[in-house]
């Protein structure tokens, strides 16, 4: 690339232009910036909004997390005290942290694997059936409030579908109040989250599978690949590595962003805080207690575990098919 640019700027191979000035890095950069000024103009509106609502807020949150701030007075520097309090003195935070991890560790990998496995299995169907199956699996993720149907499904009275059946079969005598019972809340929320989780990453897997070169499979068959499982491990997965990474990123973001489903189905807070997540804890400190410094520390913890999860997954996916 550098070569073509040197030519484009009428420079010889010694880096001298026709003006005879030596080509320093700074001058080269300035020339490039001037030549491509249109690029800056075109990205400017997007970048302004993106920085204002995403980049700057994340940086500011990190800064605020070391302070105590209530919006009325100037933030007061407190060092790592917020974090110390979070991990050593805030029991509810520990609940939130472990629940978030539990939700993320179950829904994240399961939804990631499901979106690959389902896409992989449907890939061998005929195009028309594949299109229908895709809609069936993808629809719940784009259906907004449709997950409320699980509330009707598992209604806590005799009119609920599940309770109706269990009563009729004689398994229970009184209806179970599913979304208020600490035994059922977490597993049910995980199921509902999984139900809505075959989204964009599922679609990109479907597209990625169709993009794998068929001649690779034929070459594999000649080289002695015995069955579809070997085929998937040695051919499909390695050639889809970048798509899998994209899917993993979205799965992680989805898995840690758990919270709206719990609110809608179990109420806020859920019984005995069994489904209390970092999202809830953050909202609590921000919207009810107005302790923005402390809330920022929670946000930073969330940010950190998402980044760490992404790093680990990238490391892991680099090993696929080897």
């Amino acid at each position: 690339m550098a070569d073509t640019n040197i030519k484009a700027n009428n420079l010889n191979e010694h880096g001298y232009g026709y003006a005879g000035k030596p080509m320093t890095k700074g001058r080269y950069l300035r020339i490039q910036m001037k030549r491509n000024w249109a690029g800056y103009v075109m990205v400017l509106p997007f970048v302004l909004i993106f920085f204002a609502f995403t980049v700057v807020p994340v940086i500011l949150s990190i800064a605020l997390s070391f302070t105590s701030f209530n919006m009325l007075e100037w933030p007061e520097w407190k060092g790592v005290q917020n974090y110390v309090q979070l991990f050593l003195a805030d029991d509810l935070f520990i609940t939130a942290f472990s629940n978030t991890m539990l939700f993320a560790i179950t829904t994240g990998p399961i939804s990631f694997i499901l979106s690959f496995v389902v896409a992989w299995f449907t890939n061998e169907l005929s195009p028309r059936i594949r299109a229908i199956v895709t809609v069936i699996f993808y629809a719940p993720s784009i259906s907004g409030t449709a997950y409320l149907v699980w509330g009707i499904f598992f209604q806590g009275n005799i009119y609920g579908y599940v309770n109706g059946w269990l009563l009729k079969m004689g398994i229970i005598n009184t209806p179970i109040v599913f979304f208020k019972d600490t035994k059922y809340i977490v597993p049910l929320c995980i199921i509902v989250a999984l139900w809505t989780s075959l989204g964009t990453s599922f679609l990109s897997n479907i597209a990625g599978l169709q993009g794998v070169d068929r001649s690779l499979y034929e070459a594999g068959a000649i080289d002695g690949i015995k069955n579809r499982w070997q085929e998937a491990w040695y051919i499909t997965l390695p050639s889809m590595r970048s798509i899998l990474l994209f899917g993993a990123v979205l799965s992680i973001t989805g898995a840690f962003g758990f919270g709206a489903i719990v609110n809608a189905l179990c109420g806020n807070p859920s019984t005995d805080y069994v489904a209390w997540t970092l999202q809830h804890h953050l909202t609590e400190y921000m919207s009810t207690r107005f302790e923005y410094g402390y809330a920022s520390a929670i946000a930073v913890v969330l940010f950190a575990i998402m980044m760490i999860a992404n790093l680990l997954v990238q490391k892991f996916l680099a090993k696929v098919g080897q």
Partner: peptide, 8 residues
């Protein structure tokens, strides 16, 4: 997720 930026 966007929650991280929510406070600011």
């Amino acid at each position: 997720s966007t929650t991280v930026a929510g406070i600011t």
